[in-house]
Simulated scan of single mutants.
Amino acid sequence: MARYTGPVCRQCRREGLKLYLKGDKCFTDKCPITRRNYAPGEHGQGRKKLSNYGVQLREKQKVRRYYGVSEKQFAKYFSMADKMEGIAGENFLKVLESRLDNVVFRLGLAASRAESRQLVNHGHFMVNGSKVDIPSYLISVGDVIEVKEKSTKSSKFKELVEGHQGNVPQWVEIDTENLKGKIVAEPSREDIDIPIEEHLIVEWYSK
């Protein structure tokens, strides 16, 4: 399935909550879901009772859009999490949180996950001293992520990090002076920003 390229705010309206896809705009009165908190389209304001299938589908789509992952990747990550020890739903969220584009965003080195994917694609980051330009690259505990030396000359990154201080989750550390971050623990379920009922996604893939 191709990546969605339309207005991203429509995705938030479709799911009925902020997915924080537009960075700073999501925290202002200009956020469309603040002004039009109903689904887009001609029948968006109509009330519709969802079946169990519909509830599971909406939860899956919400999480997939939140992390900006394709349908194929999403299913692959669930299959990976399902084979791990522990609770499948929590493992699944940990895998999604471990993507390089998400980690870059969590460190405050990008204003949104979409911007983070673009910056990673353009080769602005290094992992353990080697350039990585694959947003889906999975990070492990102990890995060090840093802005490439040539890119540190841009004031953009330091401005982003300084504005993001206090919002960095406990499983990562950020060196704002050197624009370098380290994974100090596995992602925590409590650090997820939006309400997610992962058991619904487990039920969806368990059919």
Rank of each mutant, 00 (worst) to 15 (best):
S188C: 04
S112Q: 08
A39C: 05
Y38C: 06
Y53R: 11
G16R: 05
E115N: 00
V184L: 02
I183D: 02
Y67F: 12
R58D: 00
V63L: 15
K156S: 04
P32L: 14
A110C: 06
R58A: 06
F92W: 03
V132E: 07
L119Y: 12
C26L: 04
K22R: 14
I87W: 01
L19M: 07
Y137H: 14
H199E: 13
N91K: 03
M1L: 12
I196L: 03
E198Y: 04
D193C: 09
E85P: 11
V69G: 06
G181V: 07
K156N: 01
R47D: 05
R189V: 08
V127P: 07
E162M: 13
S79Q: 14
E203P: 01
V184A: 00
D29L: 15
V8Q: 08
Y205L: 03
K60S: 03
A88H: 11
L100H: 04
P32M: 11
L109P: 01
Q165V: 12
A185N: 10
K148D: 14
P135S: 14
Q45D: 07
V95K: 03
R189I: 15
A111E: 14
S130N: 15
V63S: 05
V127H: 07
S51I: 06
R65G: 07
V63G: 04
E90Y: 05
E177G: 14
S151N: 06
N91M: 02
D175K: 09
G181F: 06
R36I: 09
E162L: 13
K30H: 14
S154H: 07
I194P: 08
R117Q: 06
K72A: 14
E90K: 03
R3F: 09
L107I: 01
S98P: 00
G46S: 00
S155R: 12
C31I: 04
I174L: 15
S136L: 15
G23A: 12
I174W: 04
K148P: 01
N102V: 10
L100C: 00
F74Y: 15
E15M: 14
N121E: 13
V202P: 02
R3L: 13
H164P: 02
M80E: 12
I196S: 01
D191E: 15
K158I: 00
V120W: 07
F74C: 08
R117T: 00
A88P: 05
Y4A: 13
I174C: 01
V55G: 02
L179Q: 05
E177W: 07
L160W: 06
